[in-house]
Design a protein around this nucleic acid. Structure first.
Lengths: 109, 109
DNA sequence: CCTCAGTATTCAGTGATACTATGTACTAGT
DNA sequence: ACTAGTACATAGTATCACTGAATACTGAGG
C-alpha cells in the first residue's frame, strides 16, 4: 500500500477491528489474514497485536485463551458492551467525516 | 470534538486542506476559520500552519505573500500540478477506505 | 498615548498510532 | 533434525495532530 493509507488508518484501524469483532469473535492472526484479504495488503502483524492489547487494556473486549490444534493457543477476542458503545461512537465520528469529505468532493469538481 | 476525531484526522486533514485549495487559493487563518465553520470545532491553529509548511516543503502548493490591510501579511497557498495529483491519489485511497468500511457497517448489523 | 481585541504566522514539546524488525513457541510433514 | 505454517509479543522509529506560547501588525476606546 502506500504511506497515505498508513496515515489514514490511524484512528480508523481500531474502528475496523471493533467492527469485525462486532460480527463474530476472532483472534489476532485471523484478523490480520482477513484484513490482507480485504486489500489492506501490508498491514503488519505487530500492528494488529498491539492494537488488540490496547483495546483489551481499555476494557473494550473480552478475551478467552483457546488451544489450537495448529500452533500455540489463540487469544480469542469478543466485543463487550463497552466496546459496542465505542463502536457506535466510532461510526458517528466516521459519518461526520465522510459527510464533510463528500461535500468537499462535490464542491471541488 | 473528541480524541477519536483527532486520530481519525491523521492523514485525512491533509487531504481536506488540499481539497479546499483545489477550489480556491487560501491562507492559513482563513482555512482554520472555514474548518471550524464546518464543524471541526477545535482544530488548533498550530495544526493547520504545520500542515501547510509540510505540504509546501513537499512541493504540493505554491505560495505567495500578500499584504493584508488587517494585520501581518498573508501567505496565500494554491494547489499546483503535483498537489493536484496528490489530491487525486488521496481520493482514491479515501474511496478504498470508505468502501471497506461501508461493507463492514452493513455486515455488522 | 497606551492598551486591548482581532488578524495572521510560527515553533518547541507531548501523545497516540502504525510500521519495521525481530524473537518466541507450538505442530505437522519431510 | 529441519522447514513451513500457525500464533503471539515487543523494542525502536516515524508521522501527525494537539498544547501552549510567542511574535507581529492594525484599528478602536479609554
Amino acid at each position: 500500500m502506500g504511506k497515505q493509507v498508513t496515515e489514514m488508518l490511524k484512528g480508523t484501524l481500531e474502528g475496523i477491528v471493533l467492527a469485525i469483532l462486532s460480527g463474530r469473535r476472532a483472534y489476532g492472526y485471523e484478523i490480520t489474514a482477513w484484513l490482507r484479504d480485504q486489500g489492506f495488503s501490508d498491514i503488519a502483524e505487530g500492528t494488529v497485536y498491539a492494537l488488540l492489547v490496547r483495546i483489551e487494556q481499555r476494557g473494550l473486549v473480552d478475551v478467552e485463551k483457546i488451544p489450537s490444534d495448529k500452533g500455540p493457543p489463540r487469544k480469542v477476542y469478543s466485543l463487550n458492551p463497552a466496546g459496542r458503545e465505542n463502536l457506535d461512537e466510532f461510526w458517528r465520528t466516521w459519518s461526520f467525516l465522510t459527510e464533510r469529505l463528500e461535500q468537499l468532493r462535490e464542491g471541488g469538481k
